[in-house]
Amino acid sequence: MSTLRVTAERLTIHEHPNADALELAQVGLYRAVVAKGAFRSGEFAVYVPEQAVLPDELIAELGLTGRLAGAAHNRVKAIRLRGELSQGLVCRPRALAEVDLERAAREGEDFAERLGIVKWVPPVPIAMSGQVEPAPDLMPWIDIENLKRYPDVFEDGEPVAVTEKLHGTACCLTYVADGGEVRVTSKGLGAQRLALVEDEKNLYWRAVRGHAVPAVAAQVAAELGAARVGIFGEVYGGGVQDLGYGADSRRGVPGYAVFDIAVDVDGQSRWLGPEELAKVLDSGLPVVPTLHTGPYDAGRVLELAEGRETVSGSGLHIREGVVVRAVSERHSSVLGGRAIAKVVSGAYLTRKGGTEYE
């Protein structure tokens, strides 16, 4: 999931092709449907992203009572309005009436706390939970931001790798070379520095044992002289999320595919670049599909985010989206961290009956 930030943004207004009373307000590469005439290009307004949970007072002020997602009708979710994908909310809350939004946009001020907006946290099914223990030595995972919110992460023509984003649950394994200790956790628990106690019934432990991930981590540590190795993969299959890719997590070994590896060498942590990652995974460990390697083109990336998945081999489901990263692992001044971003498909965001467990 992306970091939740509620910020002031400069708008670009586009005509809605299918509705005379509506327009499209563009923020980055996102577009949100708004009432015609409510905003003009060049003006500043507050952008509330998807997965934001709004307080009742703000919902009522915006005229959205009963119209948002979730059991409490308080969560912002992508929808289609008259055929156009609308992601997030564009508004000018009364609580910010005295705020200079142009200045706030320039300074990157975050209004989430001031407006009482929090990030939605998906539920955790029993099969994905379990007994936990403190684990301060876990290799940390990072939230990947959406390219539509940060369109300047990559330069046109920059060599990038685009991989398919899978709809499962992130499994984070840390291998400590001194003693051969193995820690397994989920993304949510890992953020709290908690590991799952090994249990043959636990989904994550079944996946890493079934695919011999600890052995690969030990091999990576030996080859690179790493004190710690973090292998990050997606566990998937029927019983995990609504998109199962032809696998069944309830019987046998769950589906699993690696999407990232981090190593700690001489006290310095680094992420393996796409080419280095591919060489490491020659061991036969499953890896997320690579859809494109070559010059960066934003339009092409947006196209690749749509369509059918390739994991099952038969296109059983819509594609969740893609992840883009620089071929040469580098820092992004736009993100303040790794040059990596995601794009989620419109079909995935607006599908019916979808599950979003973490």
Results as ranks from 00 to 15, higher is better:
313 G>M: 03
292 H>I: 06
292 H>T: 04
274 P>E: 05
327 V>D: 11
306 E>R: 12
302 L>P: 05
293 T>I: 14
327 V>Y: 00
264 D>E: 13
335 L>G: 13
307 G>Y: 06
249 S>A: 15
310 T>R: 14
322 V>G: 12
294 G>D: 08
282 D>Y: 00
265 V>K: 14
325 R>A: 10
300 R>T: 03
267 G>C: 03
318 I>M: 08
299 G>M: 04
252 G>D: 10
307 G>H: 02
329 E>R: 09
292 H>P: 04
296 Y>I: 01
315 G>F: 03
304 L>N: 05
323 V>W: 12
263 V>M: 06
251 R>A: 05
334 V>H: 04
262 A>G: 11
294 G>M: 09
322 V>E: 12
275 E>T: 14
282 D>W: 07
247 A>E: 10
332 S>H: 07
268 Q>G: 00
288 V>I: 12
249 S>Q: 08
258 V>E: 03
266 D>S: 10
293 T>Y: 01
303 E>Q: 12
268 Q>C: 01
265 V>W: 06
333 S>W: 02
309 E>V: 09
327 V>T: 14
299 G>D: 09
293 T>W: 00
283 S>L: 03
250 R>D: 11
252 G>A: 08
319 R>I: 10
282 D>K: 09
286 P>Y: 04
266 D>E: 15
272 L>R: 05
251 R>F: 11
275 E>N: 06
288 V>R: 04
276 E>H: 02
294 G>H: 07
289 P>S: 09
273 G>Y: 04
315 G>Q: 10
294 G>V: 13
308 R>M: 10
258 V>F: 07
267 G>M: 07
337 G>D: 15
338 R>S: 11
262 A>W: 01
